[in-house]
Write a protein that binds this DNA or RNA. Structure first.
Lengths: 326, 326
DNA sequence: TTGTATGCGTTATCAA
DNA sequence: TTGATAACGCATACAA
């Protein structure tokens, strides 16, 4: 059995209340007593039991992170930002995988909630209406690193529609006419909006074609997708995922298609994969780490009630014109 | 204030003990009572408080994962395996980042311990002696997904030295003479052993050269490293990290070096990056996901005391001869 | 089969 | 400045 606060109290000839005060930095302790207690704590190598503390104080110093897939570089880069800041504020992180499955997301939420986390960070956008309804009943802070359908949730992200608008206009300026848009299919709220934005930019800039839309999430699917595009007059591909963009890119290598002359490819993510490709992928330079860091910082404010309003943080982005665009 | 077990008990006209029994699947409950209690639980949407449960039962259904860097594909692939199995056994995961820093690792361990996790998974090999000593006092199960200096810890991994031996012999057979070995520098126990193994294979197979060893962890460092190698007679590179291998590979592209004819490159990791490279990287096909999955499965057995011995699981591997080896 | 009472290790209230 | 003591929400030993 581990050392408890009682052991420390006994050893230091004080009550457990005093030990607790020392532990929590309560100023109402005589300096000498404080010193004595601290000495005993150190000598016994006493570590407070965080579970008991959580039960008594209703604060667990733990947050939950709901994430579609930790092994996806896009999300793990955000997670890294979350982690660094949460460490700074001494919060533990419980992660919950969803695999982009609405049911799992809901279950993750409930489990975290029963674990009394002090706040929750949602990555990738919530899927179901059901989840949204449950979430709105929740009385601890939630921050979504991504887009939310509902205005009632604090979010941190970049302005994807604007970014993609800028990208499309650039491509049009460079003479591109036939666009393909590849989305994941998991975040329809945002992804459909982006597809519409592309079409809108075409129309407003006098390009009289229809965007073709596909779903793909893996590198292999990107390669396969390109096989289907061979021989068409597509001259611009915008892909949400850079793994998919990479697959498409490598698909062209096998068909004597010159990138970017014959085909421009641009990805809306920018994980490390993008610059490890040859040719190097052009991307929307989403500040993934910062999204996580800012999201976590926002959550700490919300948890401390320093900030009470719902906020929508929009981080700056750049378009990273690399080797797959002219 | 959320619904508690008392609310359920009152509403169902039973004592809280009975509710608790129903909750925990205790068979000593009259079927009719059980039905009634369950109905109330559902109606009130009661969710047990996991923190209180943890305090009372001393089981939190939570495990800790100590990981050098979640945004490193190598580790996040293992983590994905851990997650899938832990979900299956209904365990929550608390992650702790170490950035390959021994102090942070130790602190992570202590925090997890004070959070009463039921077990801990260590990724990447522990660094400090200090950590090892603290770990040995810990009375909950620990599994290391990787190599441990100490025999007293359960481990899951592949036989890296054998794998690298096979790789080196193959390269020697194909006429390679001047080897470069690139390690991360973080896991000296294993990495030094591997360096020695390479040298030993050379000697035993009549190759009379010395292996050159470098440290590098990023793609950029790989590129830089290659710059330093230009003009030397190096004809074989074995790299621990595939990002580094990729950097080296792309470094050669700028110097008219033909891979694999002039230079063979092989990585000891095999994250998805390896096959997204062109040319595709040859690797030791480490079953990352399986290492995580098996590690977590082992931990559940240890936590249930189904397994009590210290075990060293060695998973099978393959050498993935792709485009950067002859 | 069910209920009562106690303890888990803290925090927090109230008195002293 | 300190100490008793009551929560916190549950599991569980013991009684009934």
């Amino acid at each position: 059995m581990a050392i408890t606060i009682y052991d420390v109290a006994r050893e230091a000839n004080v009550s457990m209340a005093t030990v607790s005060r020392v532990l929590n930095g309560n100023p109402n302790v005589k300096p000498d007593t404080r010193r004595r207690v601290k000495e005993v704590i150190k000598r016994l190598n006493y570590k407070p039991n965080a579970v008991a503390r959580g039960l008594a104080s209703k604060k667990t110093k733990t947050i939950g992170v709901i994430i579609p897939d930790v092994s996806d570089l896009y999300y793990s880069a955000i997670l890294k930002g979350l982690e660094d800041i949460s460490e700074m504020y001494q919060y533990q992180i419980i992660i919950s995988n969803t695999d982009n499955d609405g049911n799992k997301e809901l279950k993750a939420f409930e489990t975290l909630s029963s674990n009394q986390v002090d706040g929750i960070i949602l990555l990738g956008g919530s899927l179901d209406e059901a989840t949204h309804e449950v979430i709105e009943q929740y009385d601890n802070p939630i921050v979504m690193c991504g887009y939310s359908k509902r205005e009632t949730m604090s979010t941190v992200n970049i302005n994807y529609p604007d970014a993609i608008g800028e990208v499309v206009r650039g491509m049009i300026d460079r003479g591109r006419k036939q666009f393909v848009y590849v989305k994941s299919g998991y975040h329809s709220f945002l992804e459909d909006a982006l597809g519409e934005r592309i079409q809108k930019e075409l129309e407003e800039n006098g390009v009289n074609t229809k965007v073709d839309t596909y779903n793909a999430v893996t590198y292999e699917e990107g390669i396969e997708l390109y096989e289907r595009l061979v021989g068409s007059d597509v001259d611009a591909v915008i892909s949400i995922s850079d793994e998919v963009a990479g697959g498409i890119l490598h698909g062209t290598l096998d068909h004597n298609v010159e990138v970017p002359k014959d085909l421009e490819v641009l990805s809306c993510s920018n994980t490390r994969i993008a610059y490890m490709m040859r040719p190097q992928l052009s991307t929307i330079a989403v500040p993934l780490y910062d999204i996580g860091a800012v999201g976590m910082r926002l959550l700490t404010k919300l948890m401390n009630k320093e900030e009470t309003e719902i906020t929508h943080v929009e981080l700056p982005y750049k378009i990273n014109y690399s080797e797959t665009t002219l």
